[in-house]
Design a protein around this nucleic acid. Structure first.
Lengths: 212, 212
DNA sequence: CAGGTTTTCGCCTGTTGGTCGAAAACGTGG
DNA sequence: CCACGTTTTCGACCAACAGGCGAAAACCTG
């Protein structure tokens, strides 16, 4: 979500929402306050620090150091917003102000990396969703098509998918109605990658069928 | 590596190296400059942004926002350093100044997370090393014992291990001399987790043995 | 009710990683 | 100089995991 700058510098170019840090708030409080001036922050399903951008010449004039955040909103909500802000596709970005273009690139990269190893995918989906919707989100974020079969199996194994029993309304061209799922709170909370080198005891001893 | 503060506030408490950002440098340049006042920065094998710490009261007096970094040094080097600095074990830290204790915790967590999914392990090892040494480093950083067999297989599959042909001197209690390896530059450079949901084409089609 | 569409499920395959045991290569002490 | 302990290395086995169909299920339209 970008907004179009009205004043110099970089007038009429698109910009990420943000602003100055006050003396009595930390950076996360600040970014939520900045965002609240544009949209309803309660819709935010995920917020995390991305990185500090601090090149001396990244902004003309006095020195400005930026702490960039990655924020996600479920795909079914379109928060009320002022006239100068608009949603943009990350693949077709307009000319952007300052170094905001590289910030977006970094955010996209981070999202893709974390998607398949964490629960972050659920931050993109509404409370109840179909596997197909989830598949579309994953495909878009990762840049390649993922199979619905694998997605469901992987997430089910981690006890993250819980069927609601309901089914989604069928599409305009027919087809079997998709089952609805929700994010199971009893599932594994994953904010870090799973370890490839696991602790001992997570495997099974080989049953020695026994050559003599 | 910590240094003992001589002056108030928090005199005689241990502190992470750091200092103010100059107007003509970015944060990474700055942290390298700060560190250069203590040790030989050329020994640093890895440097990455960790997080911003910005609680309004994290430092008494005027507001200070910190960008924390994670820096690694190979285990065989012990850089020259002034008298007021010292290496400490992360499990037994002394009373620390400001919020530096939580910064260290965060860094330790990050190291463990990234270790098994990236090439970061090599930043901890000397140019030539044995599998046992690598195993010890991984075990220490992850907090549990990893098997040398698995470690070697996992890293070999990623084409990261390259035998030098030499062997390490045998220990005081005998034992087979360990083969030496080096980090292969032709291996896969991994800074992000491997994707669990892989792109299509990475699996193999099922050979239909064919029920009628 | 025949055709098209979308979802769902089962089965197969290749790969990965944990475990274990045996063999190899070294030092030491009797 | 040879049995013994020690450490590393290698091969084999097994379970879990993830990708790839293809058939069946469930819905709509005409």
């Amino acid at each position: 979500m970008l907004w179009e700058r009205a004043r110099e510098p970089h007038a009429h170019r698109w910009s990420l929402p943000g602003g100055g840090l006050r003396v009595d708030e930390d950076v996360e409080t600040s970014i939520r306050r900045q965002l609240a001036e544009k949209v309803d922050v309660r819709q935010l399903s995920h917020v995390e620090q991305l990185a500090v951008f601090s090149a001396p010449d990244r902004v003309p004039g006095p020195r400005v150091v930026a702490t960039a955040f990655l924020g996600l909103v479920p795909s079914d909500v379109d928060p009320e917003r002022p006239a100068d802000t608009e949603w943009h596709c990350v693949d077709t970005l307009p000319p952007m102000a300052f170094d905001h273009s590289s910030i977006v690139q970094r955010a996209r990269h981070r999202l893709g990396s974390k998607l398949s190893y964490t629960n972050l995918g659920f931050a993109l989906a509404p409370p109840e969703f179909t596997i197909s919707l989830l598949r579309d989100h994953y495909s878009a974020a990762l840049g390649y098509r993922v199979a619905a079969t694998n997605l469901q199996r992987v997430l089910s194994r981690r006890l993250l998918l819980e069927p609601t029993g309901g089914t989604a309304p069928t599409g305009p061209s027919g087809g079997r109605p998709a089952a609805l799922f929700r994010f199971s709170a009893k599932g594994i909370k994953v904010t870090d990658p799973f370890a490839v080198l696991r602790p001992p005891g997570s495997g099974r001893p080989a049953g020695g069928s026994g050559s003599p």
